[in-house]
Design a protein around this nucleic acid. Structure first.
Lengths: 121, 121
DNA sequence: TTCGTTGTTCGTCGAATATCGAATAAGCTA
DNA sequence: TAGCTTATTCGATATTCGACGAACAACGAA
């Protein structure tokens, strides 16, 4: 597992961020992360193969929408809300509001059984 | 030239609108239209073949971002700002602000010589 | 060291996208 | 009617994207 790349705040590209946020599944992931809590990979459930979920998380990470932290063999994902708001004020907020109104989830939800103890400890 | 389809306000899809707004050239078109003025097709210049420009305008139109009005053999394009703001409050504003700050144009600009008299008449 | 767990990466597929030039259709104009 | 202008559509390519299963790498545990 190679160390993931995270673009700096100044490197965020508007078209790239928009593209990352144009997929229902990825919008669903952002919504799940919108409360600011750090979520374990295993907590994030989507109706796709895990390689596909990994792909979508990578697209979000590469665009600078999320940050991935590794802890042993697990990783934890957060929304880079502050960075995004700094570069693109209001964009994420408007997206979340619209996605809430339309109920765009992409089938993403928090895995029922998964624990997020590491994030709380 | 077939009559173009325009989705109703209630039919606008967030992922589709986001996708339409994830291309630099299309962001540039939206910026040029952002003042609310109706622009003639010939006024919209971009560094691509006219068939490609037509394609991008179609993507925006199909997503409900712009409206095309035909007058004889010409057509005029407007931004559906009100419809978009109603469905996705703040989204277009945030996009325009961010695009302005980043100076995303996609190479789009108003054609120097082109007239927009029909729109003013 | 040998497993088991956990994400990532790879190879592949079909669908969608971006691009161009040529052909076309629709409406003016001569 | 015959041409001209204007934008769309078509056909061809090249690229990207989303999806899957399989293989892999990294780490902790037995």
């Amino acid at each position: 597992m190679r160390r993931a790349h995270h673009p700096a705040t100044e490197e965020l590209s508007l078209p790239e961020v928009m593209a990352a946020l144009s997929d229902p599944l990825r919008i669903g992931l952002v919504r799940v992360l919108a409360d600011g809590a750090e979520r374990g990979w295993g907590e994030l459930w989507a109706p796709v193969a895990k390689s596909t979920l990994s792909h979508h998380l990578r697209v979000l990470r590469d665009a600078g929408v999320t940050r991935t932290r590794q802890e042993g063999t697990r990783c934890f994902v957060t929304l880079r809300r502050q960075d995004l708001d700094e570069r693109f004020p209001g964009l994420v907020g408007a997206l979340l509001e619209a996605a809430g109104a339309e109920d765009v989830t992409g089938g993403v939800r928090l895995a029922p059984g998964a624990d997020s103890t590491a994030a709380r400890r």
